[in-house]
Design a protein around this nucleic acid. Structure first.
Lengths: 133, 133
DNA sequence: GTCGTTGCAAACGGTTTGCACCGTC
DNA sequence: GACGGTGCAAACCGTTTGCAACGAC
């Protein structure tokens, strides 16, 4: 992936990408900062932000914005959807084939050129269900 | 709607709600502030934020978060989906029946209790298509 | 050696909040 | 008259940016 691009491969960038890919938790930028800091204690938060942005722009990772205030990042760029817990904010993956071409349906009802879509579910995760009883 | 709730009806709150309902443009909080200020020149931005929050919490209006930095608000609480222009940021409505129960599909693939979902399309609006040629 | 990248710290922008006064109920 | 709402300004918090030193190519 990254290997195919013309991005300069600094130690910071490599570690950020490795850490993001090692995890399925859709971390926020500051969670990434903590993860990366374990391996590169002198890394700066600005570097984490800059690299996540660059990696997202080049399509190597996904920037996701599932409601809430903070942006989250995803090392899995395959098509999939997200599930956010209203109680704790965690974001999980859900693979789901609607069986219909949603973008085609939308295109038929508007003059926009449709580029992509986002389908996100909001609910209560198993852990929070247990807590709430 | 608001009439059914126990909310105290101040002049500011009434004007905010009227202005939001008079429009289909999904304004941001500061756009609402400008709209309301034409009728109540002394209104404060904090009041606009507080009331939009309260109205959204009580289900009288919709708070929408279609990517981008600023939250937007929608006086139309009927089920519908949104279409965001990547070029200018405008948000339009699109009514669309996927013909399948997306939440049921998702529920079958997860242990979350699913409460709701968001389906949003991203594209280029007619005006920006024209500009871009 | 070049020029993109880093660490640092300060700035930014949208949103929230503490407070004393005000107005709805 | 009580108590929720208001205006104002300052605080907040996630993110971005200017800058001089650094390091990948």
């Amino acid at each position: 992936m990254l290997e195919d691009t013309s991005l300069r491969m600094t130690r910071q960038r490599r570690v950020i990408l490795e850490e993001l890919r090692a995890v399925t938790s859709h971390p926020t930028a500051d969670e990434m900062y903590e993860m990366v800091r374990r391996r590169l204690p002198k890394v700066s938060l600005g570097t984490v932000y800059r690299n996540l942005e660059i990696l997202a722009e080049s399509g190597v990772v996904l920037k996701i914005d599932v409601g809430g205030t903070k942006k989250r990042f995803d090392g899995n760029v395959a098509v999939h959807h997200h599930l956010r817990c209203v109680a704790c904010g965690r974001v999980d993956d859900v693979e789901l084939d609607p069986g219909v071409d949603l973008e085609a349906l939308a295109a038929a009802r508007t003059d926009y050129d449709i580029l992509r879509h986002r389908l996100e579910f909001v609910g209560v995760c198993p852990a929070c269900k247990a807590k709430e009883g």
